[in-house]
Structures are given as C-alpha cells and as structure tokens.
Design a protein around this nucleic acid. Sequence first.
DNA 1: TGGGTAACTTGACCTTAATCAAGGACAAGC
DNA 2: GCTTGTCCTTGATTAAGGTCAAGTTACCCA
Lengths: 227, 227
Amino acid sequence: MEFNRIIFDEFKHIPLFQALDDSQLEAIFSTTKKMALPPKTTLFERDSPAEHFYMLHRGQIKLFFLSQDGDEKVVEIIYPNQTFAEAVMFMPEHIYPVSAESIIESEVFRFDIRFFRNLLGNSRETCFRLLAIMGKHLHARVNEIDNLTLHNATYRLVVYLLGQLPDSVTELSAIHLSIPKNIIASRLSITPETFSRIMMQLSKKGYIEVHGNDITLLDVDGLRALL
Amino acid sequence: MEFNRIIFDEFKHIPLFQALDDSQLEAIFSTTKKMALPPKTTLFERDSPAEHFYMLHRGQIKLFFLSQDGDEKVVEIIYPNQTFAEAVMFMPEHIYPVSAESIIESEVFRFDIRFFRNLLGNSRETCFRLLAIMGKHLHARVNEIDNLTLHNATYRLVVYLLGQLPDSVTELSAIHLSIPKNIIASRLSITPETFSRIMMQLSKKGYIEVHGNDITLLDVDGLRALL
DNA sequence: TGGGTAACTTGACCTTAATCAAGGACAAGC
DNA sequence: GCTTGTCCTTGATTAAGGTCAAGTTACCCA
C-alpha cells in the first residue's frame, strides 16, 4: 500500500501494534491492503484457509456461522478500530472458525498472517500482547457460554441494553441501536420475534421506552435488579 | 518439590514444556507442587485471583460455573496429562473465569504462573506453543457456542457419543462412560432427565444399547446420519 | 448385611421460546 | 406516485426441554 502518514499514525494506535518500532510498522504497512466493502459483502468464510487478519476502519462487520439449513448465529459484531481474526494466527488448522460479512458499507485493512507471524518472533512484547488479546477473547466466549446455558433471553437482552450505556449512568439514559435489531437478536441467540416481544414487555413494565432504534432506559436500577 | 526422575521425564512430555531446555525445566520443577485431591475437592473458584495453573496427573477434574441459584454448568472435563488454566496466564484481570473441582480422587501438579510467565520471555518457541494452545481453546469454545445455539440436545449427545469412539470405527463399537452421567449431561447443557430420555430413545430406535455406563453403538453410520 | 446416600430413570406436567402466518412501517428506486 | 423489498411487530400455535415428584438401582461403608 502506498505510504500515507495519517493511516500510518492510525496503525500506531492499534493495541496489537503498540510494541512495534517504526521500521516494523512500515514493513507491515507495505504489505497491507485497504479494502472497501459494500454492504453484505463476505470477507471470509468459515473453514476456508486463513491468510489474513483485519482491522475495521469504518463500518460494521458481523462474525457468524450458519447451520446446515441456513440458520445464522452472529457470534460477534465488530466496530471501527477493532482488529479481528487475529486469533486465527495460531489456530492449528489455519482456517477461519467463523464467517465474516459487512453489515453496512465498510473499510478494512487487511494484514498478512504469515508476515506478521514472522515479525512476532522478534517482538516478545507483541507476543504478549497477542496472548492478552486471545485471553480476552477466550474469557468473552466463556462468559457467553455462561449466558447461554445459565440465563434466559430476557437476561441476555437486559445485559446487552445495559452494556450499551456509555458509563455508569444511573437514570434516564438514552441509547441508540446502531445495528439492525435482527442482528442483535442473533447475537443474543434469540429470534427477532422474541426480541420484539421482550422489548414490548420491558416497555409495558416501565423499564424502557422505545422509539425505533432509540431507546430510553427509564429505570436503570430496575433493569440491573432483573439480573 | 524434591527431585524425582520419573516425574521430571513426565514434564518433558507436556506439550507446553516441550521447547524448554533441561535447566528451565528443572527451575519449573523446583517451584512445582504435587497435590493430592480427594473426590469433590475445590481446586480454585471462579473470580478468585489466579496464581497457578495445573497439570492433571491422575483422576478427573471438572471446570464449571454456578448460577446465582446454584445451578451448575460444566464447561470442560479434564483428563490425565492435560494442562489446564494455562490460558489464565494472560487474562487481563488475573482471575479464574471458571471453578475447578475434582470429580474423583486426583493428583495434580501445580505451577506458578508468575514464574512461568517470566520464563516465557526467554522462550519464543514456548510463547508460540501457548498461543497455539489458546487458539485451540478458543476454537473449542466457538464450536461449543455453535452447538448450543444451532443444534439440539440429541445432536449434542450423539456428537459426544461418537467422540468417545477411539478411532474411525464403523460398527459394533463399545464405549465406556468414565464420568457420571449427570456430569456429562451438564457438560452438554442438558438436564439428567433429558439425558436419560434421549438415551432411551436412541436405544428404542436401535442405535445404541445401554448397560449402565457401558454403551454399545449398534449403528455408528446411523448415528452419524443423525447429524 | 443392611442402611444410607447419590445417581439414575420414568412419568406427568409446565414454561420458554421457536415456528408459522399475517400485516405494518419504512426506505430505495422507477 | 406506486412498487418492491427488508425489517419489524403481533397473534396463534407448537415443540423442546425443563421442573417436580416418585421410584429404582447401585454403591459405599459401618
């Protein structure tokens, strides 16, 4: 990719890259490709050979898998400035365990796994950073299994809503759902119908107020008490 | 721990340790403790500070978490010669994400995380091994989420049974459930009652034959076809 | 050898959330 | 404007699996 100061500076702020020096960053830079993705563009597919990992620059990406009969489960939603599929670098089979597709028009940077892996040999600190990232992912997955097996749909939805709060706000907080409800539903492993019904229940009980994708949490403490 | 040639040789075969030289291994050895665990002994608890990881030498350990009202979900079952809780080494908060308890009388080796982490700085190859292990764990968790969200209880149970087969045997294969059925049930996120009923159904349909913990898979291809 | 406990099974019933079906809201394009 | 498609909502129904309760089996240990 042609050198671009602004993008280069952006790279410096990627957590995974923080321990690298300028010459290493430049090397990565020169092997990187910037890609524009129209909405609903497949970036990679589950079980296909993994040669790249990515950083989302603009837009939204969903990571998901499909069942035999076409049901989709969204595992994670990627927001700008997040790297994703880094974990695949050290997966034994070198295949993607999930598929990735843009939700809206997006831009990603594509990094070469092989190249980065070599670079990793020279930077213990970057190794440690990658380990920390994998640890975080692993923890998140374990928590998801907890949520799926020990908690019901309402619990998961309320956790999601509270998670959308900017900080520890306690009253009358407005949140905006930036992704379609059916994708949030899939992320939470519930059907769109059930999602809709639970939102209606929470409204009726006075916990929230819904106007399309804008939601006001009328009673944050009440919602917390549901957990 | 007092030096013991036999145990020392055993350490050499732990995947995570394979890249270490004898002096490094000896250093680990000297900071290791062998622990005997009676049945149902807690080894560590979820959310408690993580200072050690372990290798199971003999017995069986379950990794699990509890819901507020005491329901238990078994996340993984550890068999001899497996290391576990290594992933915690690089988790940001340094706490165990799950609890661990012996199922039967067991023996574990306990390793110091801090010490091993330092050692990791001098062994790139060991870093890579740990990364590979974390990658494997992560993949396993993602697959579990797939199973939980996209497949039903029968599917999960059949996958488990087929997974117990030594190799790609195709007919009249006997397997033995070495762990209590209720723990397998929890591992598969189904109740003991449902577990029992599904086994009965599979028996009635002629796929399997059950005598206590000894199960004969009468029709392996038929079972595979259910998936 | 018998008593006690934990594990397992079975039956009846219930709850949760999925499915099926229909209609409404909204935006994009002609 | 109207059409088309996508997303969302709502209602009626169903299915899967959980819960509760009662027994049975198996095993441990005095």
